[in-house]
Design a protein around this nucleic acid. Sequence first.
DNA 1: GTAATATTGTGTCAAGTTTACACAATTATA
DNA 2: TATAATTGTGTAAACTTGACACAATATTAC
Lengths: 232, 232
Amino acid sequence: MERYAHSTRILVALDCIVFGFDRESLKLLLIKRNFEPELGKWSLMGGFLETNEDLEVAANRILYDLTGLKDIYFEEIKTFGKVNRDPVERTLSVCFFALINIHAHDQDSAKAQNAYWIDLKNRPELIFDHNEMVDLALEELRYKAALHPLGFELLPEKFTIPQLQKLYEAIYDSPVDRRNFSRKILSTNLLIDTGEKNENSSTKKAILYKLDQEKYQKQFNAFHYFISDSMR
Amino acid sequence: MERYAHSTRILVALDCIVFGFDRESLKLLLIKRNFEPELGKWSLMGGFLETNEDLEVAANRILYDLTGLKDIYFEEIKTFGKVNRDPVERTLSVCFFALINIHAHDQDSAKAQNAYWIDLKNRPELIFDHNEMVDLALEELRYKAALHPLGFELLPEKFTIPQLQKLYEAIYDSPVDRRNFSRKILSTNLLIDTGEKNENSSTKKAILYKLDQEKYQKQFNAFHYFISDSMR
DNA sequence: GTAATATTGTGTCAAGTTTACACAATTATA
DNA sequence: TATAATTGTGTAAACTTGACACAATATTAC
């Protein structure tokens, strides 16, 4: 095909913020770089967009290389495009965050990338503008998790309400009232009682629930308009 | 500086969805293309990212060329990156939407770009994936306007509550209860009574309000968490 | 075996918000 | 001066949220 006469072609990268939750705290999957540039430093997982690859396909490829998982939940958050954000060469970075079940991914894939789970509260300095990316991703996660039931993406298939509560407490870094939380979650009707109980618990065993996948898909985008129902 | 050995450099464009409101309906500022490719067809306003230009600077430049305005409210919504989205040559498009006061922009700038205000309800077919971009922008506008007081960006400096209501009715394409709307808007304390009345009105003249800019800036990101206050 | 401890599930009630309406005031026009 | 259109404010029932109490279950210590 013909080309545009006009303008400069530049390198395009993708960087991903991978969140996990280990029943206690929110974690990031970060790369201890064993390659140049910035060898030895910490960074996000990333990669370059290939010539004949859709942007979305590239995101899936990069997540697969890191975790061995397909169909991961992710969303684009922003494209970072300051001229000097990468000192080697101008590179645009399309940045997205992903939520995975921390126990379900492939350990060997992570090892091959030299990736480690790091507690969000102990995160090291990252290269380039990656710190800014993580800040934005956390903000977006908090924003979306407040409006959509996306916390489930971070939990195993079966989970208890107290576990879900701990997750929300980790996301917002603040305590939650157990009784009101339980009432609110159950009122969404998104949880199905599996009939099983959490055998790991040391005292009273909590009910294990699973997500009602069908309702989850349908209700995902039902959120509170400023213009509430009765006004319309 | 050195370059990365690795990968392919590609063209990066920006496309913007400019919303306006003319007291009745929501409008888009669209380009009747008098240049190739797709001459004669309708498209969004766009442009290429220049070599030594930050992405954000490019967005401001493109908006300025179209409207003659600086400091326009805009937000990035997504980067479109299908391989064949532009048949001329692979081009990534960083897409964003902007909100402007339809009466405050420079007519000559719009004319120079061959841009016209088109009612959202009569929008023509657009080139490439621009239809998809508009759909997404409208979705984002509805999402954000429900949670943040950003409708004001579309109104003149002084406006009445009935005008604001008409705007929300246009955004959500559904009627709103006048009395509940008024109460809800006033309870935000974002409006300052100017003491003036709308002289254009044919019957009872409504109070002209202006935005409390300071509160607006502060409250912009105060939104309803799923985890509501008392839980934290 | 029983008591103590930790954790989970459910309940209650006051305060606040939303919803669905009604009525009075203002202004141009007939 | 009456009529019609529009704007501003009010109210009561229904519903949701916030703050807190108590009972049930399971492990561990004695």
